[in-house]
Design a protein around this nucleic acid. Structure first.
Lengths: 350, 350
DNA sequence: GTTAGCACTCGACCGGGCCGAGTGCTACGT
DNA sequence: ACGTAGCACTCGGCCCGGTCGAGTGCTAAC
């Protein structure tokens, strides 16, 4: 059956059976049979009845069969139905709650550092890989722009409201002297308070009007602001606990694993995937296996949540694990960490 | 035989046979038999003679036997002898030479960026993982120390001679006002030209003499300089092409692979390994498998070379691959890249 | 609609036989 | 003393067939 096809509502018992299959399979990693469910799921029916339900669920595309005499494993659609039927508020275990509280209690003020710590926290809590996309600088107001003469080179510094520091080293222009530098710095002072994007636009104007000597200098400053807000170096992905994937992926083929690790090294590609995957409304986005071509190829699922200052989403954090994942607890972890991050970011923003 | 034992010089033919075994095994990955060597190594003797030599080499601990009727594979000691007998000047293939020249022709001025690019270059050239340890800030002179009032927080900036920028965000001290800040900045100006370590020591003195209000501020600056020159955040490892290892490690056990990837995520541990491994005199350091406990556990070898400004070593760059590695070409690549890096660093230093 | 019963399917596992690579030894030649 | 030819021997890899057991799917009865 087409994995993307619309599927009818399931009756309550079918749902329960599907849920039991998913949970048993996530725990054991073995295809699960009718007997197991009849015994442990507490539905009060015999294995024969379960078998009928299983056959129906398979017909509907929620389950599949490695071979005739094996148990069932969930398809991506099966996981999807399971996830959608999950209660919104998954519970954290006490230890996890404490780990989060402990981490955020002694957190420093630099958001980039906090994110590194957060993805590691998430990866330890879930045993999957942690991922985060830090805020983009575009709308951060500039508090300073500086030109620093370093002899053979000139260092350009941009400092943002929230502690962000971007730099660019350029070769010293030939005719540069103290006066030109001072003049340029005066112009740059006028840009304080503008955001990175606004300042960049303004700089292009200024450069057009400026004298030859300053022209290049100002363009270089604009270029710094540009590369800080867009393109390769501006946006990156923070990752942690990636080795957990090598662990969990026991039944993955080697080839799949290699491709996964290869892509994890290409930040820009990961960034795109994360952007696709987290473009949802609610507080949690779950992408399961083949629902996204990339994650499908790696046989993984991604759970993300946005973090915000006030109402504005400024970044994304989440985990990535095998499709055979403990969604309930992973979702609870991601939600909790994102919530704390939002509180922290909102506080920092004031 | 004890793998660390001293071994006698080998006769020229034994050396040739060992060399043939290593090279055939590196190419094919299969244990190599006497027949293969007799045919391809051009020694002009029969396979029976080769067998005698092989038995002798095994007795000496240079080769081993997966089982009776299999060919030989080199031990770590075998690789070691092979590497030591290698001509010092391995040749680069023309394509590799061009890749290096091309990269360094369009390189930017920021050393950290250059290193990122260099390890990727190395990993592409060798198909192994690239590693580098960037220079430590300790002996870099400071060109600026700044305190920037950002409302609820204060940003401390340290800018080094070579374009290094370190920052630290602290909560705004309660009684801070413009005057205190200005006073502190005046004191900081006096530190220009000192190195990170010198400035740090001086700051501790200044803090002791300073007024209450400035005391904490100056201590925080000292703390920034401290964390920038030592400890967790100061020194890190630049890595690239790590996924190549998942590739090459075909015959590695899964468990080994997982442990390897786990450690690769722990920068400080990698840093120690690299420091151990590269503490040699000459221009190239090669550590093979069990010669270092860590690399032994991962069944890998590491080749490193220092890069320098003038005569002073400022950092290390190299590759890491399976013990079954093409040492000759990897060594040539590392040597060549380190040489270019040294030239670049020396140039930047003026 | 549910259940019990049962034949059937298919992978996992085991043991045996065969094959072939490659050794190690011995006896011979130079 | 060293190199070589010959040959028995070893051992992993592979294929085959048989057995086992989990789990299905169907049917007939409740």
């Amino acid at each position: 059956m087409d994995p993307m096809a619309e599927r009818p509502e399931l009756g309550p018992r079918k749902s329960a059976v599907l849920r039991a299959v998913v949970e048993a399979y996530v725990r054991s990693g073995e295809p699960v049979g009718s007997e197991t469910i009849a015994e442990h799921a507490g539905l009060g029916v015999s294995s024969a009845t379960i078998r009928n339900e299983l056959a129906a669920l398979e017909e509907l595309g929620y389950l599949s069969h490695p071979h005739t005499s094996a148990g069932r494993i969930p398809t991506d659609a099966g996981y999807r139905h399971y996830v959608d039927s999950l209660p919104a508020g998954g519970r954290l275990r006490e230890a996890q709650r404490r780990a989060i509280a402990g981490y955020f209690a002694e957190v420093m003020v630099d958001l980039e550092e906090v994110l590194k710590g957060s993805v590691q926290l998430l990866s330890r809590m879930t045993q999957y890989a942690g991922l985060a996309v830090p805020p983009n600088a575009s709308d951060e107001p500039l508090v300073r722009l500086e030109l620093i003469d370093m002899g053979p080179t000139v260092l350009i510094l941009a400092i943002g409201q929230h502690g962000r520091v971007d730099k660019r080293v350029i070769d010293r222009p030939e005719h540069l002297d103290a006066k030109i530098l001072a003049d340029a710095e005066v112009r740059l002072q006028g840009l304080r308070g503008l955001t990175y994007v606004e300042a960049q636009a303004r700089l292009l104007q200024l450069a057009a009007e400026a004298s030859r000597d300053q022209h290049d200098l100002l363009l270089n400053v604009a270029e710094l602001l540009r590369t800080s807000t867009q393109g390769e170096r501006a946006s990156h992905v923070v990752m942690g606990g990636v080795s957990n994937l090598a662990d969990e992926a026991q039944q993955m083929r080697r080839e799949t694993l290699r491709r996964l690790f290869e892509t994890l090294e290409r930040e820009q590609e990961m960034l795109h995937v994360l952007q696709d995957v987290s473009s949802t409304q609610g507080d949690l986005a779950v992408t399961i296996g083949g629902e996204h071509p990339s994650t499908g190829a790696w046989e993984t699922s991604i759970i993300t949540a946005p973090f915000k200052t006030g109402e504005t989403t400024i970044g994304t954090i989440g985990v990535m694990g095998p499709t055979r994942m403990d969604y309930l607890s992973a979702m609870a972890s991601v939600r909790a960490v994102a919530k704390r991050l939002s509180e922290l970011a909102t506080e920092l923003d004031q």
